[in-house]
Design a protein around this nucleic acid. Structure first.
Length: 499
DNA sequence: TCTGGGGTCCTAGGACCC
DNA sequence: TCTGGGGTCCTAGGACCC
C-alpha cells in the first residue's frame, strides 16, 4: 500500500448537460435534461438546476417532465461529448502516462507514474489536484470533481464526496476513519441489491459493514464479491490503474416506442440490429465467437439466448443467421408467446483481434448446416463435411483467394480457401477454435488451396493427437473437379508446426 | 413513475474430458 | 467393473456502473 494518496479520480460534473449548456448560452443557469426524449426514454444526465426538482439519472423522462415541464429536454449528442472527453483525457496524459478512462466523463490517473516520481506529500498532491481541476476548466469551460487516495476505491469515493467542483484528498493512513461514517451505498459496487442484503445484517454504514466477518460476507454475497467487500470496507484495494483494458464484448440494443407484435417484424428488427453490431465489430478491428440475442417482453421480462461459433468471425453471413436462429426462442421466452416485444438486442463476445480465423468459422458454420441437412453421423476424429454456399467472399482475409481469382470460375461460383493447420475436428464433433486457430498464422504449415468441385483435405494440426486425422470436403455438383492432392500435401506438414 | 444503452464481472449448473 | 474428482467450456441470469 502506498503512503502518498497518488491515485486520482477525475469526474466531470453533470457532463452531458454541462456540454449542452456551454454549447448554448441560453441554457445556462436553467434546468437541462439530457436523455431519451421519446415515449420510453430515461434521463442520462440532469443539470444541477434540474436536480433541484428531484430529477436524476435513470429516471423515466416522462416522470422528469411531470416534475419539471419547463426544463430543456435534449437528445444526447455523443459526438460533442466525445470531443470534450478527448480534450480532458489529453490533458490528463500530459500529467502522467498512466491514465485509465472509465467512461467519457471519468478517469483514474496514477501520479506515481509521473516522470519525476510524482508528488511526495499530501500537500503536493492537493496542489496538483487543484491545478488539474483548474486546467480542465480553462480548456473545456466545464468543471470537474477530483478525488485522491491511496487506492482506486478511496479516490473514487473522494471525487464524489463534494460534487460539484470538489477536490478531496484522503491522506494515507486515514482511509478507514474517513470511510467509516459513509453509507455502504457510497462504496463502488454496492448497489440496491447488495445494500438490501447488508441491511438484513444490520449494516448501513461502512463502520457497521466492517464489523461483519469475512465468512458472513462471503455467505451473503458469494466468494468473489464477499471477499472483495470485506477488504474494500477496510480501505484495502490493490487494483492498479491500467490504461489499456481490452474490449470484451460489443452490443447493440433498441427499445421500440411500440411493442413489436409479430414474428416478421421481430426478425426484421433483429437482422437490422445484427447488421449494426457487425459494423461496430469491424470498426473496432475485432472478430467474435459468441452471439447473444436479448429480448424483453411487454412486462419487462428479459431473457438472453446465446450461441458460440467454432471460431471468431466478423462475417455477417455467419453472425446474422446465428442471431436469427436465436431470436424466436428468446422472444417466446420473453413474452410467453403472447403480447409484444419492447426491446431487442444483439451482442458479440469472445472477441479476438481480427485474424484469418474467420474463414475457418465460415467453413465450420457451413459444416453445421450440412450436418442438419443430411444427418450423416460423423466418425471419430473426422471433421464435418463442408458444403460451399453461394457468395462466401473471403473479403479482407490476408492472402485469401478471392472467388474472382479462381480461374474459370463464374463470379457466382464459390471458392473456398483453406488455411492450415486447419483446425482439427475434436472427436468428430466440432472444429477446434479460437486460440488453436491462431497457430495458423503463417509459418511452415500455412496452407492455401482454392477448391472447385469436390476437394477433400486430409490434415493433421499441431494439436492433433496421433491417429486423428480430420477430413474436410467441399462439394458442389455445379463445379468442376480439381486435383485435391496438392492441397492435401500442403496440409499434411502442418503437423510439424506446433512441434 | 414505469423503467435506455453501453459495458464489466460473477455465479451456477451441465457437458465433457482426463 | 464401478466410481470419483478436477478442470474447462458453454449457457443463462443477475448485479452493478456510467
Amino acid at each position: 500500500m502506498r503512503a502518498v494518496p497518488s491515485i486520482l479520480h477525475i469526474d466531470m460534473d453533470a457532463f452531458f448537460a454541462a456540454v449542452e449548456q456551454r454549447h448554448k448560452p441560453s441554457l445556462r443557469g436553467k434546468p437541462v435534461v439530457v436523455g431519451g426524449v421519446g415515449l420510453r426514454g430515461v434521463v442520462s444526465t440532469a443539470s444541477y438546476e434540474a436536480r433541484v426538482y428531484g430529477i436524476g439519472s435513470a429516471m423515466p423522462t416522462a416522470v422528469a417532465r411531470r416534475r419539471c415541464p419547463n426544463a430543456a429536454y435534449l437528445f444526447p449528442r455523443f459526438g460533442a461529448y466525445h470531443e470534450v472527453s478527448q480534450v480532458v483525457m489529453g490533458l490528463l496524459r500530459e500529467v502522467t502516462p498512466l491514465v485509465e478512462p472509465v467512461s467519457l466523463d471519468e478517469a483514474f490517473i496514477d501520479l506515481a507514474a509521473m516522470p519525476d516520481g510524482g508528488p511526495g506529500t499530501v500537500e503536493d498532491v492537493r496542489a496538483l489536484a487543484r491545478r488539474i481541476s483548474d486546467q480542465v476548466e480553462q480548456r473545456t469551460g466545464l468543471t470537474a470533481s477530483v478525488g485522491a487516495g491511496t487506492s482506486k476505491l478511496v479516490a473514487k469515493v473522494a471525487s464524489d464526496a463534494e460534487k460539484p467542483h470538489g477536490c478531496v484528498v484522503v491522506a494515507g493512513g486515514s482511509e478507514q476513519e474517513w470511510l467509516d461514517p459513509l453509507p455502504v451505498r457510497k462504496l463502488w459496487g454496492v448497489g440496491p441489491a447488495t445494500a438490501d442484503r447488508l441491511l438484513k445484517l444490520g449494516a448501513t454504514t461502512v463502520a457497521q459493514l466492517r464489523a461483519l466477518s469475512e465468512s458472513e460476507l462471503v455467505g451473503l454475497l458469494g466468494h468473489a464479491w464477499g471477499g472483495q467487500l470485506y477488504r474494500l470496507s477496510r480501505g484495502q484495494d490493490d487494483r492498479e490503474v491500467s490504461p489499456d483494458r481490452e474490449t470484451k464484448s460489443v452490443s447493440v440494443e433498441d427499445t421500440y416506442p411500440h411493442d413489436l407484435m409479430d414474428r416478421p417484424a421481430i426478425r426484421a428488427a433483429i437482422t437490422e440490429l445484427a447488421e449494426r453490431v457487425v459494423r461496430r465489430l469491424k470498426e473496432s478491428g475485432h472478430t467474435g465467437r459468441t452471439v447473444t440475442v436479448k429480448a424483453r417482453g411487454h412486462d419487462f421480462t428479459t431473457v438472453t439466448r446465446s450461441e458460440t461459433l467454432a471460431a471468431p468471425t466478423d462475417d455477417p453471413r455467419l453472425l446474422i443467421p446465428a442471431a436469427l436462429r436465436l431470436v424466436d426462442g428468446a422472444a417466446d421466452a420473453a413474452t410467453g408467446q403472447m403480447h409484444g416485444i419492447r426491446l431487442l438486442g444483439v451482442g458479440i463476445s469472445g472477441l479476438a483481434e481480427y485474424a484469418q480465423g474467420d474463414l475457418i468459422a465460415e467453413l465450420e458454420g457451413l459444416a453445421a448446416e450440412e450436418d442438419e441437412a443430411d444427418g450423416e453421423p460423423e466418425r471419430e476424429g473426422e471433421a464435418a463435411a463442408v458444403r460451399a454456399q453461394p457468395d462466401p467472399a473471403p473479403s479482407a482475409v490476408p492472402g485469401a483467394t478471392a472467388p474472382s481469382a479462381v480461374p474459370g470460375a463464374p463470379s457466382a461460383v464459390p471458392a473456398v480457401t483453406l488455411y492450415g493447420p486447419v483446425p482439427v475436428a475434436s472427436e468428430g464433433r466440432r472444429w477446434l477454435a479460437g486460440k488453436d486457430v491462431r497457430h495458423a498464422e503463417r509459418g511452415p504449415g500455412w496452407v492455401q488451396g482454392a477448391g472447385l468441385g469436390r476437394v477433400t483435405v486430409r490434415f493433421e494440426g499441431p494439436d492433433t493427437p496421433p491417429g486423428r486425422i480430420g477430413t474436410f470436403s467441399v462439394d458442389d455438383p455445379a463445379l468442376e473437379p480439381v486435383d485435391s492432392a496438392e492441397v492435401a500435401r500442403a496440409a499434411l506438414p502442418a503437423r510439424a508446426v506446433g512441434h
